[in-house]
Design a binder for these strands. Structure first.
Length: 339
DNA sequence: CTGACTTGCCTGCTGGTCGC
DNA sequence: GCGACCAGCAGGCAAGTCAG
């Protein structure tokens, strides 16, 4: 099977592969790009505004489809949230299964027996696993980001000429960001000291976080679950990933990983540009996979940047010439590569 | 040197939440 | 019930780096 690299519309390829004719579906969505309901004999497809996906779409069919008999397929990404709530009600799904910020499924397939929540991961390119700036708690382990420090600046000083921003930039900001924009400019030494302190603290937290994760496979697997499936425990039983030709039931693969009794490692990594981060890896037998690279960043540390967000932890996919990323881990384990 | 690719950072947006 | 606020996401962009 050949599929176009860099296509952002794998979901549409996947959906159309269940139909007897991709062409008529293709022409339907081209005629109705801002949303619609497509019916073919006994399959209904419901989608939202997919204009951006259609421009360079070339539908190619999956030859290896999982054994599913869809009745309704929802392309969730661009559906309005009130419609998603209705979907949850109509099919008696758990609250928040498709309509919550933690919901990660790209499409939902309703069959006679059960729902399939499906998320697509492009194996041809690396992507972020996620990012967050508030509070991540796994068991007793936590990472704390953001910018909670309180600063006081007289209201009269909070004007655009006291910042290093343009008038337009400044006026788009909320009051908190305006205050920081002025603070960065008027008290730059103090601000720089604060940034340095917070970064140091972030690295210290991250170091502990990663070392704690190496001691407890359950924590690591919970991290993967949250990242891939979202917070909703309720969908885990029915959650699948499509990666290339693999159709992966996340829960069973994670269980298999646990049974393989992997060794978890962490190490510091310094990028070519000297940016420090932490790597997490898993070793099963003699094969090692990088789970993720975690790097803290103080977003908005420069004076001429409008939004001052503070510490954000970025979870990046990572691989190198020797070892591959979490995607290969999931694929290999699902194919029983380790027995 | 130059064009292509990588990496880190920034912005705009969205949708949830919270307090009134 | 509503506005203000904020976390999180995706995508873009530019500086840095590499290969030829």
């Amino acid at each position: 099977m050949q599929r176009k690299n860099g296509s952002r519309s794998e979901e549409l390829n996947f959906i159309s592969s269940f139909l007897s004719s991709s062409e008529s579906f293709h022409s339907f969505i081209r005629r109705n790009p801002i949303g619609g309901t497509y019916n073919e004999s006994n399959i209904t497809i419901i989608y939202g505004n997919i204009t951006r996906l259609i421009s360079d779409l070339e539908l190619t069919r999956y030859s290896l489809l999982p054994n599913i008999k869809p009745i309704i397929i929802y392309h969730l990404d661009h559906l309005k949230s009130d419609l998603k709530k209705l979907i949850e009600l109509k099919h008696s799904l758990h609250a928040g299964a498709v309509c919550s910020e933690k919901a990660k499924a790209d499409i939902l397939i309703i069959t006679k027996d059960k729902p399939y929540y499906i998320s697509f991961k492009d194996i041809t390119k690396e992507a972020k696993l996620g990012q967050f700036s508030s509070h991540l708690q796994l068991g007793q382990v936590k990472l704390e980001g953001g910018l909670k420090k309180f600063i006081e600046i007289p209201a009269a000083k909070i004007i655009h000429t006291n910042s290093n921003l343009t008038f337009e930039q400044f006026n788009k900001l909320n009051s908190g960001n305006k205050k920081w924009a002025v603070y960065k400019s008027l008290y730059d030494k103090d601000f720089q000291r604060l940034v340095d302190q917070m970064m140091e603290n972030a690295y210290a937290q991250l170091y502990t976080f990663c070392h704690e994760l190496t001691k407890d496979i359950d924590l690591l697997l919970e991290f993967l679950t949250r990242t891939l499936v979202g917070n909703s425990e309720s969908v885990l039983d029915d959650f699948y990933l499509v990666m290339g030709d693999s159709f992966i039931h996340v829960k069973s693969v994670l269980n298999k990983i646990k049974k393989l009794n992997p060794e978890i490692c962490t190490q510091e990594f310094i990028s070519r540009n000297s940016k420090k981060s932490m790597l997490l890896s898993i070793r099963i037998k003699d094969k090692k996979y990088w789970i993720t690279k975690i790097e803290p960043s103080f977003d908005g540390s420069r004076k001429n940047v409008s939004q001052t967000k503070g510490i954000i932890y970025y979870f990046q996919e990572f691989s190198d010439n020797v070892n591959q990323s979490y995607k290969s881990l999931l694929i290999d384990v699902s194919e029983n590569k380790f027995g």
